[in-house]
Design a protein around this nucleic acid. Structure first.
Lengths: 244, 244
DNA sequence: ACAAAAGTGTTCGTGCTACACCCATGG
DNA sequence: CCATGGGTGTAGCACGAACACTTTTGT
């Protein structure tokens, strides 16, 4: 039987927007580091203790059991690294199936994108660390490629879905949402227009609450929440819309 | 070992825009049938001869071998149904992994979208037929869901990529491209605006040739081809464009 | 000349960006 | 009362939809 020894694993790129202190940032080159560090998109990685690829960094995941579907498997594997309650969004990415992508028995990898919202800060095992995506360490196997795919997918979906609900707190001022978009997209986004775009599409709902202004003054910010807490496509057709 | 008996299969939804004669169309309800039949998006299906689900219709595919990646497997499986040279585009869709999606040993299905251009008309085995997607027969297992996913993905990509190269002939007038878009999207598209949109994005290139006008007169049409013959995203950001 | 099909030009609406200007709060 | 951050108003631009009008062919 030519396929008897093929196994199937799940790998998840879990992202969160996190603040990295100045000293950690200073050593790197291209990072946007204003005083006090930088707010960046981070991915959860663990460092391999044993060969193959000892010391290289891996995505959380593992073999799929015979009685679970892939998303269940992904959640189960993540439970070993973070509190699963904190994972607000999980979706399938593509499958990596090169017969020689890992040494040993042939293993097909189904990859997932996971999101953890602010301000969660789960306790992590000692081998597991959040890494800024702008400065990834040496990655095991094809895991670096998986992270790139996940990043690209996240950036794309930020522009035509409400996927940011997976990164944002339950209630937030526009300035926080702006930081999230800037970190995840990697370029500056205007809070004014962001509010208008997402407002028009019905993605955001005003809660009526306001944040207290900071020590340094300033008008108190209105607080918003995401209208839906599951993925919704909000701008389906860029062109070639169906006639009304 | 909890995962020793899991197998992996590939399923491909192969689409082509095809002309169905009037008598075949007349019996159906909602189809757009002008005199002479209808031009519709069709999917390649084969009818199961044996249980389980004898007589129900299935997507082409089969088990993945230990030494091939998924896309190679998909091409190999398709070779049994159509001339693989005719498949102009093949891309991954999502994975179906419910442990009970098929009877017998647990089988994970990786699904693909395949496209066959006009005017190819491959010889098919006797159990295999092109079915209009607007009138699918009883489908085996979860194959109906797979076809729906594939259709949705195709429609979405028609609006922001050059994926129509996979359905169009090497050289074509705008009227033909219009038919392709109408069939695949399921609604009317204006040839005038289609040419402008795709032209502006650099998707289409004029060949300089012209088609002869039909028996009934009319101005000869300019012929175009797709600039690229592999997938290219042509309208990446619907909103939240990066600053210039 | 007329019908048919292709191509062009024009108007309109909409959505996003950019930026100037007004509002509320703390020191 | 001024600095700071939040919010509103508005002008401009780019894109696509719709549709009238012109061009080129066959009969």
């Amino acid at each position: 039987m030519p396929n008897s020894s093929t196994t199937h694993e799940v790998l998840t790129a879990v992202f969160q927007v996190r603040h990295f202190p100045a000293d950690a940032v200073a050593s790197r080159s291209g990072a946007v580091c204003h005083a006090g560090g930088a707010t960046e998109l981070a991915v959860l990685l663990w460092q391999r203790a044993r060969d193959p690829q000892a010391d290289a960094w891996s995505l959380p995941g593992g073999l799929v059991r015979n009685d679970e579907d892939l998303i269940t498997s992904a959640r189960r594997q993540l439970a070993e690294k973070v509190d699963v309650q904190e994972v607000s969004h999980l979706e399938q990415l593509s499958v990596f199936s090169d017969p020689h992508r890992v040494p040993g028995p042939r293993t097909i990898a189904s990859t997932f994108l996971g999101l953890v919202p602010l301000p969660a800060d789960p306790k992590l095992p000692t081998d597991t660390v959040w890494h800024p995506v702008s400065d990834l360490p040496e990655m095991a196997f094809d895991h670096g490629t998986v992270v790139e795919h996940a990043r690209t997918r996240l950036a794309a979906k930020l522009s035509y879905t409400n996927i940011a609900y997976g990164l944002a707190p339950a209630e937030f001022p526009m300035s926080t949402l702006r930081e999230i978009y800037c970190a995840a997209l990697g370029y500056q986004v205007d809070a004014t227009n962001l509010a208008r775009v997402l407002g028009r599409r019905g993605v955001l709902t005003a809660t009526g609450n306001t944040a207290r202004s900071g020590r340094t003054g300033g008008r108190p910010a209105a607080l918003y929440r995401f209208t839906d807490s599951c993925l919704r496509v909000t701008d389906e057709f860029a062109a070639l819309r169906p006639p009304v």
